[in-house]
Design a binder for these strands. Structure first.
Lengths: 290, 290
DNA sequence: AATTTAAATCGCTTTTTGTGATGTTAGCGA
DNA sequence: TCGCTAACATCACAAAAAGCGATTTAAATT
């Protein structure tokens, strides 16, 4: 059985049709048909039910499907294992939350890049859910996300601990004061942001629910909005650097149970980490503050 | 990366040379060379150190090696998984000890074959060590062997329990008497037979060592030799059917610690059992005496 | 230096693969 | 009902790849 046939099969199954698979595989439909038919004749079973609207897996096809994915992944891993001699090189693609990137990773990336000139670093940012999705889809080797994460396909290791603080305009002298502002809004990074849920929990605990929201795409915009008195947000306390501290934004500390979040590094359990990734992780561990 | 290239690579690595691999793969040396070189150029690393005496794995090749075997096995398993719809069919190849075959399996095979007409049954017999070797080499789906078997790659399930008896010519009225015969010999099935070692232990425990041996290839020959007074043997008590019982052979019972042996069924841990095998196992379980 | 053994290279043949055109079928809408 | 369309199947041919056998190269052994 040829691995390429299997990959073709997988694409057809996933996309629900041979023509569509042909498009994805950059070939023509007759070619896909041929490969699928050959696979079927080798196996002696029908893998698809053809219909006017495409191809649907037969039970035999369904049994084959998980192997197609596994074999594909294994071939890939085999290549990486053979190439990877322990000296980090190649492309390392990791994800992180925007806040983690800004707060923790930014300073690390430069020194990592300097220490491992053979590695092309790619950092993607997004929400915890997005990152987890991409790690599962093998688009990222791993990601820093808001923990805890429990998923059978993933392993996670604690990376950082953040102390979140409620941020408000400087005239509010306490959390209570900040929350009493009329027409208070939640200023959040974007839908799905890990800290948004936490913020809502914190407020709900104080009997405040159903606030309006303001969503911005960047941290700077959020801080600007908070400084302008548009609302409050919840972000790592140390994110408020000299430029914002004091005059323009006030950070209200919360009790530990509300404030502390673990940032964990997750990766697929079944994917062997590249040397570049291992080096990155040890780099992070070595240089983290505590 | 092509799976066939990987298989070629694996053969070269295992046999230590391209010419040898070519012979095993039924092709010519230049072909093997070409495949290996392509694999190397795809991966961008050298997999072998060529020398006058063959090809030896480089570190990169060593890292690739385990994947070659795994991928090969997975492809195989994928094919079986796709074909196997739960209705036992195809070829089921299992191994067993000769005594187990004669005593336990013979009656089962007919009824199994009747119950599953789609299955071609192949039964190989040999010693425990041979059977284990063949299961590990994937020549057999599983085998009945003399337990206990501990091996990280195997799983074993108890199948039968045999009571061994010391067999002698009928004039010896007791174990002691049987063993006092001058010029006593051990009549054993063949070198490596599981019960031979047990017999030697039993005798050693009675202070008898260094006896001459007679080896035969079939059970019938052994029983004939014992009946003729040539020596003693150790075999399952119930093996002595009406044709031999009483007049021609005497079975001397031993104490349980000496007599009892477990027959276990072993199979590779990483190999998914075919439906034919599952049916066979349940057939065995269902019909065994106790 | 000749011999031997194994890998690399090369030209050729055969086989496999990919392509585009065409055929076939089943549902859909006028 | 009659096309029409969107899907897979088939086919012939061109292109690419694989396989083969002869030859070359390299290194160790005699």
């Amino acid at each position: 059985m040829d691995a390429r046939d299997l990959a073709t099969f997988e694409a057809v199954a996933r996309l629900g049709g041979m023509s569509r698979a042909a498009r994805e595989l950059n070939t023509v439909q007759s070619n896909v048909t041929q490969r699928v038919r050959r696979l079927e004749s080798i196996l002696g079973v029908a893998l698809f039910e053809r219909s006017r609207s495409g191809a649907r897996l037969t039970p035999a096809g369904q049994r084959l499907m998980p192997y197609a994915a596994r074999i594909d992944a294994l071939l890939d891993e085999a290549g990486r294992a053979a190439r990877d001699d322990g000296a980090p090189r190649g492309t390392l693609t990791v994800g992180s939350l925007e806040t983690t990137a800004a707060l923790r990773l930014a300073p690390l990336l430069a020194s990592y890049a300097r220490a491992h000139p053979g590695v092309d670093l790619v950092l993607r940012t997004g929400t915890t859910a997005e990152m987890v999705e991409r790690v599962l889809g093998r688009e990222l080797e791993g990601a820093f996300v808001c923990g805890p994460v429990v998923h059978p396909q993933l392993v996670s290791a604690p990376a950082f601990e953040e102390e979140l603080a409620l941020l408000s305009a400087p005239m509010a002298l306490s959390v209570t004061a900040a929350l009493q502002q009329p027409d208070l809004r939640l200023v959040v990074l974007r839908a799905g942001c890990s800290y948004r849920q936490r913020l809502e929990e914190v407020l709900a605990h104080r009997g405040i629910v159903g606030l309006r929201r303001l969503e911005f795409g960047t941290l700077e915009a959020i801080l600007g909005a908070v400084a302008a008195g548009l609302g409050v947000t919840l972000l790592p306390r140390t994110l408020i650097g000299p430029a914002w501290r004091g005059a323009r934004i006030r950070a209200h500390r919360l009790k530990p149970s509300e404030a502390l979040v673990q940032t964990v590094f997750v990766r697929r359990r079944d994917m062997l980490p590249s040397s570049a990734l291992l080096a990155f992780q040890s780099h992070v561990t070595k240089q983290r503050p505590r």
